[in-house]
Amino acid sequence: MNRAKRAGRWLVERAEDRGVWRHVAIYAASVLLLLLFWEVASVVIRSLKGGREYLPNPIVAIREMIRLGPLLFTNFWISAWRLVLAILIAFATGYPLGLLVGHERRLDELISPIIYIVYPIPQVAFILILFLIFGIGHPVKVAIVAIALFFQLLVSARGAAKQISLEHITSVLSAGASRWQVYRHVVLPATLPSILTSLRVSIGLGMAFLYIAETAGAIDPERGGLGSFIKNSAYNTGAQFAGILAMALLGFCLYIIIDIVERIVCRWTYAARRSS
């Protein structure tokens, strides 16, 4: 018991050291501010639209969220793992390929025109053919999001790899680095901060594509994901906003995870901020 208490105190002290409480307080304040805006918007719309409840107030949405708890929770998890899986697939393919294309000039000359042609196409344009290839189950939803994010990450990784300082490469080459070691010790770490930023952007984009994928075609109200949950609640704005809140929560969780990953793998950028 004593030990648990000590561990608890240690955790609290560590949190205090890192200013975690301050962060929590600021987050709470900003969430309150958002709810306030929402409430005001809801009141304004209601008065403009003759008392009709187009935009439910936050309390209604949160009450619906609790009422629909288990169903919402199931759909939350379905969307969450689809999105996370798609991000991981896009990251594992787009990032290394982007680094290669950005760093190897010959490859860049060959591949870049292809990227420039394919990237601007909205990937949802392929949605029909993807449904034909993957059927209507989970794979097609993951595929649509993964394809969209693949290009996103490919293009940013390529850009980041082109920004690498020649001095750092000379530095490891003169120390006898092989081609692979240049990637391992320079190209990879140098591009990590910007690829994590682009991963944050990808969350919003991925969420939009996931919504499209989950609402296109047949809708499964029980296990269709948050997109189909929202679309399916078209006549209950309270439930609809409960679904939207759940999507916001999903995005928020992913942002926090990326923040934590960044603090671990890009420690040096925090050291730079501390000292300046």
Binding site: E167, S171, V172, A175, W268
Partner: peptide, 29 residues
Amino acid sequence: RDTALILQNAGLLPWKTVWQNANLSLFLG
């Protein structure tokens, strides 16, 4: 192996600590 190069701005890698930078050649195995 028997030649070391020191660059204009020391050529340190920002993502490695002083110790890791000093041992870069050893890191390279």
